[in-house]
């Protein structure tokens, strides 16, 4: 058996990464869904960061179920009153929703989210019962 196969078998992330790479190559618009996310991993932990400037923390909704994280939020558009004119209009306003799938089921009690400076940081852990168990070998 080739080592790469075994690695993939043991480490769900490598398969996840392979799939992500494959998908991004296939998809004509990789990551075109707002907001753009970065996903960081370390064993049974994952961190999702996303840039959602102008969104107030009250307007962010995170729901976690199974292996998916759903992000929802909204940024109200500034009203243009009569007599005012808009010279540039590049900012993104309105509602957004995005689902991110992780390669493991998430422990919903251990999800932590911090929002500051327009960046949302969510840390997630793999559910305890799913974590691989190390089997001790006893020698006689």
């Amino acid at each position: 058996m080739r080592g790469t196969y075994l690695d993939r078998f043991l480490d769900p992330w490598s398969e996840f990464e392979r799939m992500s790479r494959l998908l991004s190559r296939v998809a004509s618009n990789p990551g075109k869904e707002f907001p753009p996310v970065n996903v960081w991993v370390n064993g049974d932990n994952a961190v999702i960061t996303t840039e959602i400037p102008g969104v107030e923390s009250d307007a962010i909704d995170i729901s976690v179920s199974g292996n998916t994280v759903m992000l929802r939020g909204s940024r109200p558009a500034g009203d243009i009153k009569e007599g005012e004119s808009c010279h540039r209009h590049e900012l993104r306003h309105g509602n957004f929703s995005k689902t991110i799938e992780l390669p493991f089921n998430i422990d919903t009690d251990k999800v932590q989210a911090v929002y500051k400076k327009g960046i949302l940081n969510i840390s997630l852990q793999r559910i305890e019962t799913e974590k691989p168990k190390k089997i001790e070998i006893k020698s006689k």
Binding site: G31, N38, V39, W40, V41, N45, V47, T49
Partner: peptide, 14 residues
């Protein structure tokens, strides 16, 4: 840049 310690980046959209 805030990089989570000991983590590696697996998806980078921004």
């Amino acid at each position: 840049p805030e990089i989570p310690e000991n983590h590696r980046l697996v998806i980078s959209e921004y």
